[in-house]
Design a binder for these strands. Structure first.
Lengths: 140, 140
DNA sequence: GTAAATGCAAAAACTTTGCAAATTC
DNA sequence: GAATTTGCAAAGTTTTTGCATTTAC
């Protein structure tokens, strides 16, 4: 069902980009990926990074995360899983499978909408931002 | 717990903006709100619309929807509810309470993350885009 | 009268794209 | 060798911001 046609050539840049994303619980923005790939391929361009992130997520090799606020993030893990999202700094983390496996979201039916899946995002504050809260007195 | 300090004055623009959002199952982008407010207040600026959407959502009077892909949407209904999201056109619709009320997402605990809530988005295709699919042969 | 809010315009932030040159298979 | 991919730079989109002026209370 999934077109596997776009990945034709494993360029150095593509390889580095995939390596970058191949890390647990890591959900970088395009710019973060760019900066890391750049260390080994200094002349890489942001455009190339965006193009590859787009191609790879269309292929289903990686996942594009749209729920993180204004800036898009990417996830090297294409298999369905849930995320937690820090409301203060925007960070995304994986919800451990063990914690969420038993969640059983039922199949929903709607008259005018064909539902094909769902996303569940837990919100709150990461360790780092919790600490800051204590000093700030609840900044917004 | 919620600072109620920013809404100091009910300006004409603010009133019109709130009226615009006061409609069921309507999740406009800032630009859509702008165009509508503009009909009655032709000199309103997009900046004002953005500023008000921001203030009002911080007040908890409306909701900022971050899950709709690249463009942010807003919801006049501040009470927690679930959304459905069209993968083709980006539209957002409300999941009817009756359909989702019995969903019982348990309280989650994580070691390094303080979870305060969750968002659940059902994905699929709206009536309009389902029709288009049939003609297109599964566009992307 | 005064603080808050607006309009305008410029800038910031993020993402996409055209095209000639380079690279992969 | 041919088609894909890249780098570069320019442009597109969405959102934010500074500041003088206007407005609500």
């Amino acid at each position: 069902m999934k077109t596997q046609s776009s990945i034709r050539r494993m360029t150095r840049q593509r390889r580095l980009l995939l390596d970058t994303l191949d890390r647990k619980n890591w959900h970088p923005t395009a710019d973060e990926v760019y900066r890391i790939v750049k260390m080994k391929a200094p002349r890489v361009s942001l455009g190339t990074v965006y193009r590859n992130l787009d191609i790879l997520s269309k292929e289903g090799v990686i996942t594009k995360i749209e729920e993180a606020g204004s800036q898009r993030r990417y996830d090297g893990n294409p298999r369905p899983h849930y995320h937690v999202h820090c409301l203060k700094c925007g960070a995304i983390a994986d919800m451990p499978d063990e914690a969420a496996r038993w969640l059983n979201i039922p199949k929903m039916e709607l008259p005018d909408f064909k539902i094909t899946g769902h996303r569940l995002i837990f919100e709150g504050y990461c360790a780092h931002c919790q600490d800051k809260e204590e000093m700030d007195g609840k900044g917004n």
